[in-house]
Design a protein around this nucleic acid. Sequence first.
DNA 1: AGTCTCACG
DNA 2: ACGTACGTGAGACTC
Length: 576
Amino acid sequence: MQARLCGVSLALAPGEACYIPCGHVSGGGLAFDGGGKLVQLDEADLLKRLKPLLEDDAVLKIGQNLKYDYLIFRQRGIRIAPFDDTMLLSYVLDAGKQGHGMDELSELHLGHKPIAFGDVAGKGKDKITFDQVSIEEATRYSAEDADVTLRLWMLLKPRLMAEKKRTVYETLERPLMPVLAEMEREGIAVDPDLLRKLSNDFATEMAALETEIGKLAGESFNVASPKQLGEILFDKFSLPGGRKTKTGAWSTDADVLEELAAQGHDLPKKVLDWRLLAKLRGTYTDALPTYINPQTGRVHTSFAMAAAATGRLASTDPNLQNIPIRTAEGRRIRQAFIAPKGFKLISADYSQIELRLFAHIAEIPQLKQAFADGLDIHAMTASEIFGVPVKGMPAEVRRRAKAINFGIIYGISGFGLANQLGIARSVADDYIKKYFQRFPGIRDYMEATKEFACEHGYVETLFGRRVHIREIKSTNPGMRGGAERAAINAPIQGTAADVIRRAMIRIPEALAEARLKARMLLQVHDELVFEAMDAEVEKTQSVAVKVMEQAPLPAVQLSVKLTVDARAAQNWDAAH
DNA sequence: AGTCTCACG
DNA sequence: ACGTACGTGAGACTC
C-alpha cells in the first residue's frame, strides 16, 4: 500500500533478463553510469510505456507471488492481465510437500540458490531500503528474480496439465488473486480512540494483578516469564501437577494453571487473568493502531494464498483472522472494527460448514437428514450417542456431543477428546466407540481416507485440490498418527476453503451486476465481512448470502444444503 | 532464532 | 508402549 517503486525487472527467455530502474536515489532522480549514459527512467514514463504491455490480452504476464506486483501497479492505475503465478502453480501442485517461496522453489526445481535479499540490502540495523542499493547490484538481484520466475513457470505450467490440476488453478487460485488484492487495498476502519481507552483499562487492571501476584508469590517477579513463574509455582511452592515442556522447563500453559486454580490456588488464577489482558493489549489494542495507514486511515492486512496446505488463506501484518471473540474483554476489541458514518459492516458466515461437508463426504445419512431437517446438530448427536431426548437436554450433554463432533473433523483420538472435555481417557474412548456404532460410515470414511493417503501420499478435496501428507508413511507412530489425522481433516477443511474461495471470486461480479457499491473487506475461513452504504445493506446481504449458498454449484453437487447467516451493524462484534 | 503461550476458525 | 485432537500468526521472553 505504501511501497515506492524502485524498478521493474523483466525476462523474455531463460538466461536473459533486465532491470529497469526508476526510483533509486543515486543521482537524484536520474542516474548515470560511469560513461555518462542514462540508466534510470522517470517512473511516470516507465509506467506509460509498460501499461499497454501489462494490460494486453495477448501477452501473458508471469510472476512469483504476483499479488504483490499487482497491488503495486494497481496503485498506479494498471491492472495486470492475463497472468500466471508460479507461487500458485506450485501451491496447486505441491501443497503440503514444501513451501512456495521463490528461493525454496529455485533451489528445489532449478538447483540454483538465488542472491539473498539480506546480502543486497543488509539486515538488522545496517539494513538499507532497496532504492539505496546501487543500480548494478539491484540489477543482478532483480533480473535474477525475473529469470528464476520464468524458468519456474516453464517447469511448473506443463505439470499443471500433466497432473490434471488446471481446473483447480483456473477456478480456485488464479481468479482469487485480484479479488484479494482489492480487499487488501480497501482495508477496514479501526477506531484508534477506543483501542487506546481499552489499552489503558487493561494496563490498570494488569498493574493491580501484578501487585496481588507479587504478594501471593512473596516476591516480585516478571509475570510474563514462564520460566520465573514455573520456578515459583513448582520449585518454591512445590505445587502438584507440574509438567515439563520438551526442553525440560516447567510448563505453565493455561491447562496447567487452570488445574491449579481449580484446586483453590489464587496465584495461578491471577496469572491467567493477567495473561488474558497482556495478550489482548500486546497483540491487539497496542499493535493494531500502528497498522493504520495514514493515507487511507484504515488497516490493510495481507492475505497469503499459499500458506496453509489445506487451501485456507492466512492473514498477516496484521493477522485479522484471529481478532478476539470468545471473552467479553476480547469482544471489546472487535467493537473497534467499525464502518464509517453512513455505512454498515455486514458479516456473513456459513453455518456448520465443515460438519455439513463431512456429512456429504463421508456419506452419513443421519447427519445429512439432520441438516435437511434444520435440527440442532450437536443436540441430535447427543441424543443419538447418549440416548437423551433433545427436548430438555442438559447443556453439559450437548457440550460433550459438540466436542465429539469437532473431534470427528480433526481425526478423533480418545486422548484428545479426554483432554478437551477434562474427562477420563476410558470415558472418552467409550464415547467414540458409541459414536462409531451409531454412525458406522464415519469409521469407514476414516479408514478409507487413511488408506488412500498411505497409498498415494496425498488426499483431495471435493474440488480436486490435492494436499500432500508427508509423514503418512513415517515409522514413528506419533508422527504417523499426526499425519493420519491431518489426512482425515484436510478434505473437510480444504473443501470448506474451496467453497468460500468460489464465493469470493463470484461476489465482486454479483455485486457489480446488482449495481451495488458494497465492498468485500475480510475473509475469516467461514465468514466474509462487507462494508455497505446504509441504503444498500439489505440488497448486499441478500446478494452475499445467495452467492455463498450457491458457491459449490455447478462444479459439485452437494447432498447437503449450505446455509449462510448474515447480519449488519456499526461494528464487527455487533454484526457477528 | 527458538520456545512458549495464546488469539482465531 | 508411545504420543496424539486439524489449520494458522504473533508477541514476549530467553539464549
